[in-house]
Amino acid sequence: MVTLKDYQGGETAWCPGCGNFGILVAVKKALVELGISPHEVLMVSGIGQSSKLPHYMKCNLFNGLHGRTLPVATAAKLVNHRLHVFAVGGDGDGYGEGGNHLIHTIRRNIGVKYLVHNNQIYGLTKGQASPTSDLGFVTKSTPRGVVSTPLNPISLALALGASFVARSFSGDVPHLVQMIKEAVNHRGFALIDILQPCVTFNHLNTYSWYKERVYKMGEEEGYDATERLAAFKKAQEWGERIPIGVFYKEERPAFEELFPAIEDMPLVNQKIEPKQFERLIKEFM
């Protein structure tokens, strides 16, 4: 039986108190509770403090370039769709540099689970405004405050027709574990936007800032996560109250299910047998 120890990785280089620790614990817990072994998991990460997460656990890892997690994860899932493929990145990586890939990955509905560590700041480069930094936020690159409207990843994903859209908070590990498990069990692409305090470079969106604001949607009576328009309305809430939980969920075939050739066996396990092509080749000769 798989245990937390099986996922034990090396020493971390994050700041003490970093919100990433909660995410690391939650990812491992969710995988253990789902009975998934490390060899069945591929983590694809980009560049940022978030993208170091797979370095600190034991599983398959592809660490690529800034913003480019999703194309890599998509291809990996297609050649071995039995693998649990996660993409891990931050708000700069996923919503900034890699924004274009997010759009097209959502369209495809490939069975990749995307964990976005959203700390509303660039942590690795030491404190510049990110695509989700709140208006007026003073950072090293915005000494007079952010003037661009922050990107709302939830409403963006909903508008693009994403089949699973959730938000969680790294300060609430049990909730995040639940979200990751639901994402893994979902057919197709899942986006989990994870609110994550950066204790060193973001002194606005702190643990207490988030704690005072987040509330669980499930606890609110009458919220139906299958209603896209309601989800869209809910996604607009930010500021005094910040909803966490599954905003929207829809059953539809995942991208990898659209290829009959890999229905029985992942592409990676299929042998190239030239004899099978002989008839076809002859036909064109």
Binding site: Y122, T125, K126, Q128, S141
Partner: peptide, 12 residues
């Protein structure tokens, strides 16, 4: 500009 080490402090 976009931040990247070791250039970032110029644009900061």
């Amino acid at each position: 500009a976009y931040p990247i080490t070791p250039q970032t402090t110029i644009i900061e």
